[in-house]
């Protein structure tokens, strides 16, 4: 198992904040909009540097999505910022008609996704957003795994023409990807090469997969770990190449089992090479209040649950081989 060390921990939303400033410096057409959550979205530095390129819309997310769509007419590249729940479910029809169907170059940037939002509870912990957004034709869906990757993704989506959903989170987690990485939309990142099982992880679950991989190595299991930061378009080639070697799959995501990364992978496997697969995801339920750590454990989204899923899927592979 490749060794991943880290010297600091940061939240992915701060990676977005830093990336937004960099994107703003690179392209004067980058503008930002926020629905009364400037501090939570870490947009302060952008506002300080480019006050005239920031739009405060107040607590009116539907209006924000419409304004963002309109701002593209004339060449602006709008980045909207609010919690993932209010970035998707609350404004689905606005995104569908005014952004996706109208093919507008809007970047929907969503913080506090999933259970790790923590104590605010299920009203704010959206676990269905990846599903909703990936079903929209033409929408790119990205869920980076740490501060550096989120920053790089934010810069990359400014350079890409078309609607994007960028999902990140609240908690402080290890920074383990390189600061100078090149972020290529739709290109999976090989975290660790292995031969016994393929673990495809996205967002906060990538670090959990690394921890699981280290423990699995001690148990004599060689796990291939791949970071699927772009859920749509999915890197079919990387996934199929990996499973051709390992013959079994675990997907890991901070999302409902229905409609997330796992479902996209399962569809790819069903069409190409049906194989045993286990999901590490929320099992079709809402969340609740608690600390991020407590919630990730209770809802089965930590390294221990990845290990259990690996053991189960490898057993299924063994049975099939007989």
């Amino acid at each position: 198992m490749k060794k991943y060390t880290y010297t600091e921990s940061k939240d992915t939303r701060s990676g977005f904040g830093a990336g937004l400033v960099e994107a703003g410096r690179k392209n004067e057409n980058v503008v930002a909009l926020c629905a009364d959550l400037v501090g939570s979205l870490k947009m302060g530095d952008f506002i300080k540097e480019f006050p005239e390129r920031f739009v405060q819309v107040g607590i009116a997310e539907a209006n924000m999505m419409g304004i963002a769509a309109g701002m593209t007419i004339g060449g602006k590249i709008p980045f909207t910022g609010t919690f993932a729940n209010f970035s998707t479910g609350r404004v689905y029809d606005q995104i569908r008609q005014s952004i996706a169907y109208s093919d507008k170059n809007v970047k929907i940037c969503a913080s506090h996704a999933g259970l790790t939002l923590g104590e605010d509870g299920a009203t704010h912990q959206i676990l269905e957003d990846i599903g909703m957004m990936k079903m929209l034709p033409g929408m790119t869906v990205i869920n980076p795994c740490d501060y550096n990757q989120t920053k790089a993704a934010t810069v990359a989506i400014a350079e890409y023409e078309g609607p994007v959903y960028l999902r990140f989170g609240r908690p402080v987690i290890p920074v383990f990807t390189p600061a100078d990485q090149e972020f290529v939309i739709g290109k999976a990142w090989m975290v660790n090469e292995g031969t016994d099982v393929s673990i495809f992880a996205t967002g906060h679950l990538v670090w959990e997969a690394i921890k699981a991989g280290e423990k699995l190595a001690e148990m004599g299991i060689s796990a291939e770990i791949i970071n699927i930061h772009t859920i749509k378009p999915l890197d079919d080639e990387a996934i199929l190449k990996s499973v051709a070697k390992t013959g079994c799959v675990v997907s890991a995501e901070e999302h409902n089992r229905l409609g997330g990364l796992g479902d996209s992978i399962a569809q790819l496997l069903a069409k190409n090479t049906p194989l045993p697969m286990e999901y590490v995801a929320v099992n079709d339920s809402f969340g609740e209040s608690g600390t991020p750590e407590q919630l990730m454990k209770k809802y089965g989204l930590d390294d221990e649950h990845i290990i259990k899923a690996v053991q189960k899927v490898m057993e299924r592979k063994k049975v099939l081989a007989k």
């Binding site: 539907a62 419409g66 769509a69 309109g70 007419i73 606005q94 093919d103």
Partner: peptide, 30 residues
């Protein structure tokens, strides 16, 4: 819809209530 690239149309509309926000955005960009 803009989807079929009909000249003159800059946004899809039909689901009501969205056009004022879009127009405000275009006005801000201007």
């Amino acid at each position: 819809t803009t989807h079929e690239e009909l000249p003159g149309v800059r946004i899809a509309s039909g689901s009501l209530g969205q056009g004022l926000s879009v127009a405000i955005g275009a006005a801000l960009t201007k």
